[in-house]
């Protein structure tokens, strides 16, 4: 039976991993520095993190916590896991940053900023970090919608050889973070039942 075997929720004011609030002493206002504070708290040690845009940082951190809690083996190439994320604002947070670099009087576009003007880059970052060779997909919805997300997850499970789907809502815009990342496993005896009601409750 399919189960939700781990989940992580990141909002502006708190981080919750499998129902437990992490005791992170945030300083200052919500914003991108909070993501760095979470990174330090977790002691991740992945310098590429600092190059990421905020959307990728947020999705990456939640994925780190979910996979970490499952003792996921990130060294062995894994063709049986897929990553399916969705959000409302796509990459608008980084789009705005890039737009600032292409003003006629101040023109200095950088590939390091431009590459993140695609929302699916966060799924690539998670795949690279964890050697995930399954599907990576990104969908846009007007608002968090557990029913639709449940459908997208089912689609990912229907692809041959896929037994786990790391999925969730990864929204980041103008300093506000709204993330829920969950691991869905096809055959598991542990965890919560995988259904729309439970996805809604975790959000």
């Amino acid at each position: 039976m399919k189960k939700i075997t781990s989940y992580c929720r990141i909002t502006d004011h708190q981080v919750i991993l499998n129902g437990k609030k992490l005791e992170i002493a945030f300083s200052g206002d919500p914003g991108s520095s909070r993501l760095t504070e979470i990174y330090r708290y977790l002691d991740v040690g992945y310098p590429k993190f600092h190059k990421m845009d905020n959307l990728s940082k947020a999705g990456f951190l939640a994925s780190e916590m979910v996979l970490g809690s499952l003792n996921y083996d990130r060294e062995t190439p894994d063709g049986s896991t897929s990553v399916v994320f969705a959000n409302k604002s796509a990459s608008l947070d980084d789009d705005k940053r890039f737009q600032e670099t292409i003003k006629p009087d101040n023109y200095y576009p950088s590939p390091a900023v431009f590459v993140y003007t695609l929302p699916n880059i966060v799924t690539g970052e998670v795949a690279i970090r964890n050697k995930i060779l399954g599907e990576t997909s990104f969908f846009i919805l007007e608002d968090f919608d557990a029913e639709k997300m449940h459908i997208f997850i089912e689609w990912a499970f229907s692809s041959p050889g896929i037994s786990r789907v790391l999925c969730g809502w990864t929204e980041y815009l103008d300093g506000h973070c709204d993330v829920l990342v969950m691991m869905m496993e096809k055959e598991s005896s542990n965890g919560m039942d995988y259904n729309i009601l439970n996805i809604n409750q975790l959000y």
């Binding site: 590939p111 880059i121 795949a127 690279i128 399954g134 599907e135 990576t136 997909s137």
Partner: peptide
Amino acid sequence: SIRNDANHISGPSRTGEG
């Protein structure tokens, strides 16, 4: 079907894995 290289965000994999 869709598959990822797990290699680089802006460069293709040399082995064409995905």
